[in-house]
Computed example of a mutant assay.
Amino acid sequence: MNSLAVVIITLNEERNIERCLKSIRDLADEVIVLDAFSTDRTPEICATYSVRFEQRAWEGYAASKNYLNSLATSDYILSLDADEALSTELYEEIKAEKAAGFQGTYCVNRLTNYMGKWIRHSGWFPDVKPRLFPKAGSYWSGEYVHEELVYPACELQTFKGVLAHYSYYSYEDHRARADKYSLLTAKKFHARGKKVGPLKPYISALGRFIAMYFIKLGFLDGWKGFKIAQISAQSNVLKYQELRRLNREGK
Rank of each mutant, 00 (worst) to 15 (best):
F37V: 07
N113Y: 01
A57D: 11
S182V: 03
K117L: 03
Y67Q: 06
N236Q: 15
R248M: 09
A100W: 02
T10C: 14
I203A: 13
E18C: 05
E84L: 01
M115Q: 10
Y202F: 15
F102I: 06
I32E: 12
E143Y: 04
K251H: 12
G123M: 04
K95P: 00
Y114D: 03
W124N: 11
D26H: 10
E92H: 14
Y114N: 00
M212G: 10
F102N: 06
V145P: 01
G207E: 02
E172S: 12
Y169I: 14
A72W: 06
R131K: 13
Y49K: 06
F219I: 05
A136L: 08
F219M: 10
L78C: 08
N66W: 09
S74D: 13
Y240A: 02
V145S: 03
I45Q: 08
V128F: 01
R244I: 13
T112K: 01
R52V: 15
L132W: 10
M115H: 02
G207P: 07
R248E: 13
F209D: 03
N69Q: 13
H146D: 15
K224P: 01
W58K: 03
Y168S: 00
L21M: 06
L11E: 13
I9P: 15
Y166R: 01
P198V: 12
K227C: 05
T158N: 04
L68Y: 06
E242L: 00
I94L: 02
R245M: 06
L90M: 08
N2M: 10
L149M: 10
G137A: 01
A136M: 07
T39A: 10
L156I: 14
S122I: 03
E147Q: 14
W118H: 01
Q103S: 15
L163A: 05
R110V: 05
A229M: 04
L183H: 07
L132Q: 04
A211M: 12
K195I: 13
M1G: 13
L68S: 05
S204F: 11
L90C: 06
K195N: 09
K188I: 00
P130Q: 02
L132E: 04
W58L: 02
G197H: 08
V128E: 11
N109Y: 08
R248D: 13
A99Q: 14
L199A: 14
V7M: 03
A191S: 15
Y213A: 07
